[in-house]
């Protein structure tokens, strides 16, 4: 064994091998601080392209993770934002209703629209207030914008409201400016016809039409709509007046049933 080692050392071809291993042992014996300085030199100078590429890949991976997180947050925030917008609209609507509540001298019973029943012959909605809340037949139903209709069928917890845009619903109205009186009724489409307006009256486009209180159902002063067409026709006793309803019947969510005279 010893002779084999001696022969190996004596062999000229073994010289590089011995040199390499001696060099490695010298490396092992070098002070740690020196080795660290060599390492930091290599990493910061010689391996700089690799280090930069490694940093780049790390940044890309981190950006990808951040992107996923941020997308999740964005979705959460957009859902929250849409709910805030909804709350904002509801808040505005309820504020307007509250103001309205304070303005009129009647008791208002709030109700939510729980069903729509539009048919060619009748247009009505179902609300979640009935006898239990003091609702009876032929009570006016309003929103902050104006008259919605009247109750026609009442059960214990729900009621059917005949809308203003129903053939059978008629409201005694008055032009707020000229005090000309008439009967508002639906004639199809989106407009109301204000009938029985004397030809000599000065009802004009833009006039506000409100309930007169003469019909016995709707109290006076409730908003009905705005005149958008007014014309005299030859040989007729009454004016042709068309009124655009103040209430948007396609977006009813909350209404009030007006209880008065009790």
């Amino acid at each position: 064994m010893l002779s084999a080692i001696i022969n190996f050392i004596k062999d000229r071809q073994s010289l590089p091998v011995i040199a390499v291993f001696v060099f490695c042992f010298i490396l092992m014996l070098l002070p740690t601080a020196f080795r660290l300085s060599i390492s930091s030199f290599f990493i910061s100078v010689v391996y700089l392209p690799f280090t930069m590429f490694d940093d780049f890949l790390t940044d890309v991976a981190r950006a990808k993770i951040n992107n996923i997180e941020l997308n999740q947050r964005l979705i959460q925030y957009s859902i929250q934002a849409s709910s805030y917008v909804e709350d904002h609209y509801e808040n505005n609507r309820l504020r307007r209703m509250l103001d309205f509540d304070l303005r009129i001298p009647y008791r208002l019973v709030p109700a939510k629209v729980i069903g729509l029943k539009p048919t060619p012959h009748s247009r009505s909605i179902e609300i979640n207030a009935g006898l239990a809340k003091g609702i009876n037949v032929n009570m006016p139903v309003v929103t902050a914008d104006g008259i919605v209709g009247k109750t026609i069928t009442v059960s214990k917890k729900t009621s059917i409201v005949q809308l203003l845009t129903d053939h059978n619903c008629k409201v005694s109205v008055i032009d707020q400016k000229t005090r000309a009186m008439g009967i508002a009724r639906w004639q199809g489409g989106k407009l109301l016809e204000m009938g029985d307006v004397p030809i000599e009256s000065k009802v004009a486009v833009g006039d506000t039409v409100i309930s007169s209180g003469l019909g016995g159902i709707f109290p006076s002063g409730l908003m009905v709509g705005v005149v958008i067409f007014s014309q005299n026709r030859e040989g007729k006793l009454f004016k042709d007046v068309l009124v655009k309803p103040a209430v948007d019947f396609n977006s009813l969510e909350e209404v009030f049933v007006v209880i008065y005279g009790q």
């Binding site: 060099f23 490695c24 490396l27 092992m28 080795r35 060599i38 391996y47």
Partner: peptide, 15 residues
């Protein structure tokens, strides 16, 4: 040089 503490050992073992 990436692991300076083991620099000598890595060189030795690989050679």
């Amino acid at each position: 040089v990436l692991k300076p503490i083991e620099l000598g050992w890595i060189s030795f073992l690989l050679s």
